[in-house]
Design a protein around this nucleic acid. Structure first.
Lengths: 209, 209
DNA sequence: CTAACGTTTGTCCAACCGGTCAAAATTTTG
DNA sequence: CAAAATTTTGACCGGTTGGACAAACGTTAG
């Protein structure tokens, strides 16, 4: 009754973590096909055959990475709850997503890489787990609209726009920093982004009065 | 005075176009390193050595593609003008960008691929031409804010948010369609997106009254 | 027709890449 | 300590990839 439990030694656990950390770095900047086992092995400080002792195939590393990613990636949306004040809930969802773009940019880029290439490895998850979750939250948001708590609009596209605007600061980071320049492109850019997004999603651009 | 003009035959012009079209398809879905010359050659209906007769190196194809892309890509922002009504100008900028995501998704993905990987080939352009253009338009937008025509906020992040929300429908297309499902994921999704974005950028989410 | 030029192809190569394997080195266990 | 189990390594392999090259083919101008 423990056949599915891999039962690993201490060294195996440590080394697998080391490899996954290195692979996240390499995959997220070069994509799957653009990355080589040698690169990952070097980043993890071991030889290629040694790495292949822990993960039999290159795809296994990517798959493991992807599975872990998805849980943490969707966590903020899962937390979006019906109990609090709608506008506050949405604001903190945006804030959490922006914090993830700031703190886990490699994860964001890994995900973006996969989607950009047509999501060949995670398509079932998109059509299953992800769609279910989004539909569920869209229903919650619709309820808020019916109750007059937020403006009536399309909940699905609202969620897309939150994903797009926040993940942009991870996925297009180099562009953001290049455009902002050395003075405004420092760490403060996330504070500025947070302020801007809060205003955008709250009031839009129409002048007051 | 024509040393820099490549002076090409009719066949060369046609075949080079054919190759660039094929390469756009291949590069935009597989990335640079993920694409092979053979794939591009096959998509263009010719043999690999034949392709290499028109473009000596794989990078030359990519570079040519990139240079062309950038002009058309920034055209909508260039058109953003000080003469019209600010709110109308912004609205039509958003609409144009969304139309580009719909009509030129491969170009969008090619660009996204390049940025995701740290923009190794176009970094100078980002820090030069692009930054200059954005700074210029940010000044225009600031003027609108001072005149009380639109709400006061950060013009740079405003531009980022327009890029992010519109390009999302090209770059993350598979995800958008997977989440919307078969019934809502058809061509109508761009109309829905246009309506949603117009409302978002105009009024935000705060309920009326 | 033919010489010159432009185009296409088959063949080949060296580097790279994912992955195997057996043997050596190391760690764990009794 | 010694046997057993685990970890690490170097050598190797078959397939792929970017690119070179010369020969063949086609086209066009004189």
């Amino acid at each position: 009754m423990e056949g599915s439990a891999p039962r690993r030694t201490r060294i195996q656990q440590e080394k697998r973590e080391l490899i996954l950390e290195a692979a996240l770095e390499v995959f997220s900047t070069n994509g799957f096909r653009g990355s080589t086992i040698d690169q990952i092995a070097e980043a993890a400080g071991m030889s290629k055959p040694n790495l292949l002792y822990y993960f039999r195939r290159k795809e296994d590393i990517h798959e493991t990475l992807m599975k872990r990613l998805l849980d943490t990636w969707l966590a903020p949306l899962r937390e979006l709850d019906d109990i609090g004040d709608p506008m506050t809930e949405l604001k903190s969802y945006i804030r959490r997503k922006l914090e993830m773009a700031r703190d886990f940019p490699r994860e964001s880029r890994l995900f973006a890489n996969e989607i950009l290439q047509g999501a060949p490895r995670i398509m079932p998850m998109l059509e299953g787990e992800l769609k279910t979750l989004v539909d569920e939250k869209a229903t919650v948001i619709k309820g808020w609209m019916r109750a007059g708590k937020i403006a009536r609009t399309d909940p699905w596209h609202l969620i897309f726009s939150i994903w797009a605007t926040t993940q942009h600061y991870a996925d297009f980071d180099v562009q953001v920093r290049a455009v902002l320049g050395p003075d405004r492109g420092g760490e403060g850019r996330f504070e500025d982004a947070a302020r801007f997004l809060e205003q955008l999603f709250l009031d839009g651009l129409k002048p007051k009065g």
